[in-house]
Design a protein around this nucleic acid. Sequence first.
DNA 1: GACACGTGGGT
DNA 2: TACCCAAGTGT
Length: 367
Amino acid sequence: MTGPAAKEAVVAPLLSWFRRNARDLPWRRGYDPYHILVSEFMLQQTQMDRVVVYFLEWIRRFPTLKALARADEAEALKLWEGLGYYSRCRNLLAAARTIVETWNGRVPEDPASLMTLPGIGPYTAGAVSSIAYNRPVPAVDANARRVVSRLEARPFRNDRDVASFLAGIIPDDEPRSFNQALMELGALVCTAARPSCDVCPLNSACKGRSSGAIPLTPSAAVMRRPTRPAAAAVLFAGGKVFLRRRPDAGLWAGMSEFPWEETAPDESPESAARRAIAPFYEETGAVGVIGPVSHAFTGNRIRLTGVLLRLRPERETPESLARAHGRWVPLETLSDETLPAGSRKLRDLLLRDVNSRSHPEMTPEGV
DNA sequence: GACACGTGGGT
DNA sequence: TACCCAAGTGT
């Protein structure tokens, strides 16, 4: 059923429910296209509650598209620290610059134009077009896919099929609310794990419910490997610590981190930490341990132990050896660095310990 | 179409 | 602990 009947049974109850249950989000006050653009980038594969915090900080620092277009990438990345998928941040900045240069500073309205911008695919194009400009185009995310496939009690082959179905029922007068309502319903009521059908505004129209079969969308099911132990080297000398620079492509491209390696079976954290710095340095011995912290990333999960290593100053020349592979950073400015989550957690533990004088040997006077 | 790309929270 | 999930995109 894709005709007027579906519209009657679905659209009005859905919009009515949304009016009563829409969460109060910062970008829902005025629907500034720049705000919608930022929120949609941040919301890619990321949950609402976490995004709100980052969004507010971002808008405080970059209140307008033009302000963002002028920004340093390093400063933008610092604001993104901890949110993950850092190419989103780089793409958002690049998109802002392109919009200023070739779109006269105005976020494009139509999906095809939006799709030409970096980091914007079919979903984000539809979301920005409909939510920022109230254009009647579908926005198919995981929520829309799940809600629609349950509603129709049939699998959809791909997002284009879902979009075709939605194009048939999306109301011309309220596409902004309709698309948000569909996603909001999926996030709050028609959830993946345990849908609350008894309070769902669409339960009487839902074929999945009436047929007793609530199909679940095939999950991407990223197979995680079990948690493995790893060790990071917190190598220090003269009040500075060493950070390894990651390659310009791939995981955490171009970011800095404490050098780390997975620990081999029966290997100690100290040994693994030494292996991590072996390409650059020798050291005199482990003087302490921080953590462990748990760190999950793209199919992996590690328990990361930080091993404090003191550089052997009479045998190493810190600056020259490090230059190609990393940098020495003073403890005082370590919190300014943009680090992947695992290193960030270790840094926070480290700075806490340093401030409480748990590791006096790390300060310049201690060396 | 498969895979890389982060992270934290829920169960 | 381990698995699943989240307003996807680029290659």
